[in-house]
Design a protein around this nucleic acid. Structure first.
Length: 872
RNA sequence: GCCGGAGUGGCGGAAUUGGUAGACGCAAGGGACUUAAAAUCCCUCGUCCCCAAAGGGCGUGCCGGUUCGAGUCCGGCCUUCGGCACCA
C-alpha cells in the first residue's frame, strides 16, 4: 500500500473494477425487495455543473446504502436531450443539433463515471433518439384516440426571442423560463393535452403524497387551484342573449353594479359597436399594469333583483378562466373597485363586518371589503352571514334555472406545440380532403429530417423541408402535409422513468398492451421476465431526487402522464414517485468590481481588482452561475482532490434539502479527513492484514472488551447506530459524516497493545470503511482491500450495532437548581430516580447552594439530568 | 397582496420527544517538528465580569406568555429567502 493517498490512481482502479464486474447491472430478482433510486436526468448542455454533482452524489449514497441493506437496486441515468440550446448551437456554429448533443452526452457520461456514480448504463435513455421519441408519438396517438390530445385556436404565450409558444408553467414573472424575454399573447392553432381531465384526481391524490416535501405538495395544490362557485346567467336587455358569469362570492350578487367581459369573449363583437375601443382593450389584454375597459352601450339584468346594470369589456378579465365574464362587485372586490373608481361606476355595499362599521372616508370606501361579514341591502338575504348566504343565493339561482353551482380549476390544458426543430415531431397529417389525420401507428416514428438549414430566422426549419412536409394522406392517398410543430420537451421527461424499466433500454409499450392485464402481477410469479413484469416490479420510483425548480412543471406533467399511461391500460398505479427529495441549490460568494462587474476569484488580489486596482465588493452568496462568475468546475475539483472528496464535501456542508454554500477551505477539510483515514490504515496495515477477526458474529465483540479497548468498541457501535439513523432519518448525510469524523478522531488516538486490541482496532477500521463507502466509495474499496479484505465492499452487508455495547456505562449527570446548571458528576447508567436524587443532594456544591432553603420539588430525567426546585 | 420556509459563535452547521446550547468541520491564535516553509501533530477558541484561577452574569432575530425547565410550544412583531399573483 502506498503511503500517500493519490485519489486519481485509486479512483481509476475502482471505476475500472466496477465496470469490468458489471457491479451496477440491474436484475429483476423477485426474491428480493426492490428499490428504485432515481435522480432527475440532465440536459446535455456540455459539461456537468456542481448542482449535478450534488444531486447525483445524494442519489448514489442512497443507492449504495440501500444495496448494502439488501435491496435489489435499479439506479439508471439518461439524457433529456431535446431542447433549444442544441438548436441555438446549430444556428451559431453550424453544428447539427444531433452531433452537438451526442458529443455533449459522451463527455458528460465520462464525467459522471469519473464521479464513481453507480449507474446501470444498459438502461440509459436518450430522448432525442428515434427509439425513444417514437413513444412520445405513440402516446400522442393513444391520447388523440381518447380525446386527451386535441387541437384548438387560442391566445398563447409567445416568446419573441425563442420564436415559440410557452406553456403557462413556463412563463415566469411574465418572462420566458429560458431567456427571460417578456412574453406576449398570440393567437395560434395549437395541440393540447387535456390535463384538466385529471384536475380533481391530481388534486385529491396530493394528500396521498406522504413522502413528498409539504412545500412541493402545496405548490402542486395551488397550481391546480380548485375553487367552488356559482355560474349565473345575466340576460342582455333588449337582445335574445345571455351572459354567463362565474363567481365564488354569490353572497355579493346584490352588490353587482356592472358586468365585465373578456375582450375575446364570444359576445364582444356582437355587443360592442366601438371597434376601435375594443382593439385598444385587446392590446392591454394579459398585461398586469393597468385596468382598461369601455362601456358597450348595452345593459344586463341581474338575476337576483332584476336590476339593469351596464356591460363593459375589460382587459383584466381572462377568457381562459371561468366563463370569460364576471359580475363586478366593486364594494367587495379590489379589482372591480379599482375599475369602478376609474370609470366612475356605482359602488354598492352589501356586506358589513360582523362587529364594526366599514372604514369609509367621505362616506365612500377607500378599498374593497373582501372579508366575510353580514349581508345588508340584499332583499330577504339581509342579516345572513356571508358564508351561509353564499349557499342560499346559489341554491335560489339554481332553482330558478338561471345558473348552477360549479367547480373551477386554475390548471389549464397543457399546450405542447413548439415551433422548433429539435423536438419530437407531432404525428399528424393535414389533408385537404380528410382534414386532420393521425399518422398510422405502424408508420412511427416520424423521424426528424437531417438535411435542414438552421438560419435562425423565420421559425422552424421543418417548415422549409419539402422532404418532411410533403406526404400522402394515409386515408385518401391524396396530397397532404405534415404538422411541422414539435412537442414541448417536457413530454420527453414525463415518462422516462418508466422507460428505464425496459430491459437493455429497449422500450416497447405495444407488448405491454397485449400482455399486461391483469395489472400488478404478484411478486414472485415464477420465471416471468416480460417487460410488463419489469414495470410493475420496479415502479413506482421509491426515491426521486432533484431540484425544487421542477416542483410544478416536471412533477405535475409526470403525474399526469402516469395517469394517462394507466388509463391506456399499461400500468396499474397513479403516482410515479413515492418519495421525493428536493435538494437545495449550490451557492457561492460573488465578487464585483465597480468598473468591471462580476469577477472570478483569480481576478482579485488583496481585495482589489487585478484589472483596474479598485477595491472589490464581496457580494451576496448566490446560486452558482456562469454569468456571475461564481462557479466551480467539477473537472477542476476531480483533478485536484478526486471524486471522493468532491462527493464528501457536497454531502457534508449542509443537509440535502438546504442550500449549500461552497467553501474552498471546506473542501480542503474533507480532503484532510480522507487523508487521515488513509493514514490510519497505512500506519497499521501490516498488523491489520494478519489480524484475523470474524466480523459476522456481533456478540463476539463482547469477549474482546478490555479496559483499554472498550471505549473504542463502544464508539464504533455508537457510530453504526448514528450513521444508520441519520441516513434513515431524512437522509441527513452531514451529521452522518460528522459521526464518521468523530470515529476517525477516536481511532487516531487509540494505541493497540494486545492482540485483542488489534482485533478491536481492525473491527473499528473495517466498520468505518463500510460506513464511509456510500459517501466516498473509491477510497473505501482501496482501504478495504488494504486491510486484507476481498473486494467489493459494496457487496458487504451494512453493519449493525449491538445496543448493549453501544450504551454508555457511565453517564454525565447534570444537576440543575431552579433550571440552572450548577454541577455535573459522573454516575453509572441505570440508577433509580431515588439514587440519582440522593447523589445530587450529596454533591458538595449543591449542598452549599441549597443551604437553609426549602426543597420544593425534584425532577429527574432518566440518564440525563436532575432539576432541584428550591424556595427562598 | 396571498401562501410557505428560514433566522443559533468570526463562518458552514449540530442539538431525534420540552431536559447540559454550540457536535463535526472551517477560519483564527498559540505551541511541537523543520535550517526554513508547506504538510502533519498538540492546545485554546460564544460573550462579559475577574490580574489569574475558582466562580459568576448574559446568550439561539425582537417583545410577551405557558412550564420546575423553552433554540424547541403559544401569541404578537421584525428581517430574509422561495412560490403564486388580475384565477373573479
Amino acid at each position: 500500500m502506498e503511503e500517500r493517498y493519490d485519489p486519481q490512481t485509486v479512483e481509476l482502479k475502482w471505476q475500472k473494477y466496477w465496470i469490468e464486474r458489471n457491479i451496477f447491472k440491474t436484475d429483476p430478482d423477485t426474491s428480493k425487495e426492490k428499490f428504485y433510486c432515481l435522480e432527475m436526468f440532465p440536459y446535455p448542455s456540455g459539461k456537468i455543473h456542481m448542482g449535478h454533482v450534488r444531486n447525483y452524489a445524494i442519489g448514489d449514497v442512497i443507492a449504495r446504502y440501500k444495496r448494502m441493506r439488501g435491496y435489489n437496486i435499479i439506479h439508471p441515468m439518461g439524457w433529456d436531450a431535446f431542447g433549444m440550446p442544441a438548436e441555438n448551437a446549430a444556428i451559431k456554429e453550424g453544428i447539427h443539433p444531433a452531433k452537438w448533443t451526442y458529443e455533449n452526452i459522451a463527455y458528460m457520461k465520462k464525467q459522471l463515471n469519473q464521479l464513481g456514480l453507480g449507474y446501470d448504463w444498459d438502461r440509459e435513455v436518450t430522448t432525442c433518439s428515434p427509439d425513444y421519441y417514437k413513444w412520445n408519438q405513440w402516446f400522442f396517438l393513444k391520447m388523440y384516440e381518447k380525446g386527451l390530445a386535441y387541437r384548438k385556436s387560442s391566445f398563447v404565450n409567445w416568446c419573441p426571442s425563442c420564436m415559440t409558444v410557452l406553456a403557462n408553467e413556463q412563463v415566469i414573472d411574465n418572462g420566458c423560463w429560458r431567456c427571460d424575454t417578456a412574453v406576449i399573447k398570440k393567437e395560434l392553432e395549437q395541440w393540447f393535452f387535456r390535463t384538466t381531465h385529471y384536475a380533481e384526481d391530481l388534486l385529491k391524490a396530493c394528500d396521498e403524497l406522504k413522502g413528498w416535501p409539504e412545500k412541493v405538495v402545496l405548490m402542486q395544490k395551488n397550481w391546480i387551484g380548485k375553487s367552488e362557485g356559482l355560474e349565473a346567467d345575466f340576460k342582455v336587455a333588449g337582445m335574445d342573449e345571455r351572459i354567463r358569469i362565474f363567481t365564488t362570492r354569490a353572497d355579493t350578487l346584490f352588490g353587482a353594479t356592472f358586468i365585465c367581459l373578456a375582450p375575446t369573449h364570444q359576445l364582444t363583437e356582437k355587443l360592442a359597436s366601438d371597434k376601435e375601443a375594443l382593439r385598444k382593450v385587446k392590446e392591454h389584454y394579459g398585461k398586469v399594469d393597468e385596468k382598461v375597459g369601455f362601456f358597450t352601450g348595452r345593459y344586463a339584468i341581474n338575476p337576483a333583483n332584476d336590476e339593469k346594470i351596464p356591460i363593459y369589456i375589460a382587459n383584466f378579465v381572462l377568457m381562459e378562466y371561468g366563463t370569460g365574464a364576471i359580475m363586478s362587485v366593486p364594494a367587495h372586490d379590489q379589482r372591480d373597485f379599482e375599475f369602478a373608481k376609474k370609470y366612475e361606476l356605482p359602488i354598492k355595499i352589501v356586506i358589513m363586518p360582523e362587529n364594526s362599521e366599514l372604514q369609509t372616508s367621505n362616506s365612500e370606501l377607500n378599498a374593497a371589503f373582501e372579508d366575510e361579514g353580514i349581508l345588508v341591502d340584499s332583499s330577504s338575504y339581509s342579516r345572513l352571514r356571508s358564508d351561509v348566504a353564499r349557499i342560499e343565493i346559489a341554491k335560489h339561482i339554481e332553482k330558478k334555472g338561471l345558473g348552477k353551482r360549479v367547480i373551477n380549476y386554475k390548471l389549464r390544458d397543457w399546450g405542447i406545440s413548439r415551433q422548433r426543430y429539435w423536438g419530437t415531431p407531432i404525428p399528424i397529417i393535414y389533408c385537404e380532403k380528410c382534414g386532420v389525420v393521425p399518422v398510422p401507428e405502424q408508420e412511427l416514428p416520424v423521424i426528424l429530417p437531417e438535411d435542414v438549414k438552421f438560419t435562425g430566422t423565420g421559425g422552424s426549419p421543418l417548415t422549409d423541408s419539402a422532404k418532411f412536409l410533403d406526404v400522402n394522406c394515409p386515408q385518401c392517398k391524396g396530397k397532404a402535409r405534415r404538422e411541422t410543430d414539435t412537442m414541448d420537451t417536457f413530454v420527453d421527461s414525463s415518462w422516462y422513468f418508466i422507460g428505464y424499466c425496459f430491459t437493455k433500454g429497449k422500450i416497447n409499450f405495444n407488448s405491454e398492451l397485449s400482455t399486461s392485464p391483469p395489472f400488478n402481477p404478484p411478486l414472485g410469479r415464477g420465471g416471468q421476465r416480460g417487460d410488463s413484469f419489469e414495470i410493475s416490479y420496479w415502479m413506482p420510483v421509491d426515491q426521486y431526487i432533484g431540484g425544487v425548480e421542477h416542483a410544478v412543471l416536471h412533477l405535475l406533467y409526470s403525474r399526469f402522464f402516469t395517469r394517462v399511461i394507466k388509463d391506456i391500460g399499461i400500468t396499474g398505479f397513479d403516482e410515479p414517485f413515492t418519495n421525493l427529495l428536493t435538494q437545495g441549490m449550490v451557492c457561492k460568494e460573488t465578487l464585483k468590481c465597480p468598473e468591471h462587474g462580476w469577477l472570478f476569484p483569480e481576478d482579485v488580489k488583496d481585495e482589489k481588482c487585478t484589472k483596474c486596482g479598485k477595491p472589490i465588493e464581496r457580494g451576496r452568496v448566490e446560486k452558482m452561475s456562469k454569468s456571475k462568475k461564481n462557479v466551480i468546475d467539477p473537472d477542476y475539483l476531480i483533478n485536484k482532490y478526486g471524486a471522493d472528496t468532491s462527493r464528501l464535501f457536497s454531502l457534508f456542508a449542509a443537509p440535502p434539502e438546504r442550500d449549500l454554500e461552497w467553501s474552498d477551505q471546506g473542501v480542503e477539510g474533507a480532503y484532510r479527513f480522507l487523508n487521515r483515514t488513509w493514514g490510519i490504515v497505512f500506519k497499521n496495515s501490516h498488523k491489520l492484514r494478519v489480524t484475523s477477526y470474524e466480523l459476522k458474529n456481533e456478540n463476539k465483540n463482547l469477549s474482546l472488551v478490555t479496559r483499554h479497548s472498550s471505549p473504542l468498541l463502544r464508539k464504533t457501535h455508537q457510530t453504526i447506530k448514528r450513521v444508520t439513523n441519520d441516513i434513515e432519518r431524512e437522509y441527513h448525510f452531514n451529521t452522518a459524516i460528522a459521526a464518521l469524523m468523530e470515529l476517525v478522531n477516536e481511532i487516531t488516538s487509540f494505541e493497540s497493545r494486545t492482540d485483542d486490541d488489534w482485533r478491536v482496532l481492525k473491527f473499528s477500521i473495517e466498520t468505518l470503511l463500510l460506513l464511509l463507502s456510500p459517501f466516498s466509495p473509491h477510497i473505501s474499496e482501496e482501504l478495504w482491500e488494504a486491510t486484507g479484505n476481498k473486494p467489493s465492499i459494496l457487496e458487504r452487508a451494512w453493519p449493525s450495532w449491538n445496543e448493549n455495547i453501544a450504551k454508555e456505562e457511565e453517564i454525565e449527570l447534570v444537576i440543575q437548581i431552579n433550571g440552572k446548571v450548577r454541577a455535573k458528576l459522573m454516575a453509572p447508567a441505570g440508577l433509580s430516580d431515588a439514587e440519582v436524587q440522593n447523589r445530587a443532594l450529596d454533591e458538595q456544591k449543591i449542598k452549599e447552594i441549597i443551604g437553609q432553603k426549602t426543597l420544593k420539588k425534584i425532577f429527574v430525567v432518566k440518564g440525563k439530568l436532575v432539576n432541584i426546585v428550591i424556595g427562598d
